[in-house]
Computed example of a mutant assay.
Amino acid sequence: MHSAGRFRHDPELLREFPQLAVATLAVDGVTGTADVSASTAPFLQRAAARLAERPESEFPEIAAWRRAFSQMGLKPTQYRCASEALLRRYRLSGELPAIHPLVDVCNAVSLAYAIPIAVFDLDRVQGDLIVTHAAGDETYLSFSGEVEAPDPREVVFRDDAGNAHARRWTNRQSALSAIRPDTRRVLIVSEALHAAAAADIELLRDDLADAIARHWGRGGR
């Protein structure tokens, strides 16, 4: 995504999911050396407190994504949204693996809000990035190094070069635009579908922006 690149959702998808609430942050000057443990701790504590009351499958944020996955013809317990997968892992292990400081912050906030957060290396995105139904001829690079073709009508994050930067909407990101030690420019996308999504996504964005500002400066919308 060059300076002229845009991020948007296909109007057809918005008609299918009119309750969708979205927040974005663009951050320049990212580094991989920050110690974010003090920033992530409060969010992990919030997630742990929620999980102590009920399993993640009963969270309204997760239930809404499960309904969306069913609406898309996917089995929700086979394909989980990113925040459900994180919560499940955190509930079972009691910790999150350190990946990259920025990703660690995003994952902690995602856990606290139970809302999926995707992070893309903008220098790996060609032109515009749109969340849309796949044509079926897109290219997806898995973390194992395999190249996959999304199913026709599957919801993907597609750029102008036909790269699918995420499959099954909020299920799995591509290795192509994953954050690396040398990543400098990122786009962060949060998406929610539950009843309080519009309000919660703004609170999430503010919390995330504040945490990021402590380490890398304040990003733009």
Rank of each mutant, 00 (worst) to 15 (best):
A63D: 05
W65H: 04
F69P: 00
S70R: 05
Q71P: 03
Q71Y: 13
M72H: 11
Q78W: 10
Y79R: 10
R80F: 14
C81P: 15
A82V: 12
A82C: 08
L86G: 01
L87H: 01
R88H: 06
R88C: 01
Y90G: 08
E95I: 14
L96I: 15
P97A: 10
A98F: 08
I99K: 14
I99W: 10
P101A: 09
P101W: 14
P101N: 10
P101C: 04
L102Q: 09
V105G: 05
V105F: 02
V105L: 11
V109W: 15
S110F: 15
S110R: 12
S110L: 11
S110A: 15
S110E: 12
L111I: 07
I115A: 06
I117C: 08
V119F: 12
V119Y: 06
F120E: 02
F120M: 06
D121Q: 06
L122V: 04
L122K: 11
D123K: 12
D128S: 13
D128R: 10
D128K: 13
L129F: 13
A134E: 03
G136I: 03
G136R: 07
D137Y: 00
D137F: 01
T139A: 15
T139P: 04
L141V: 12
S142F: 05
F143Q: 02
F143M: 06
G145D: 03
E146H: 06
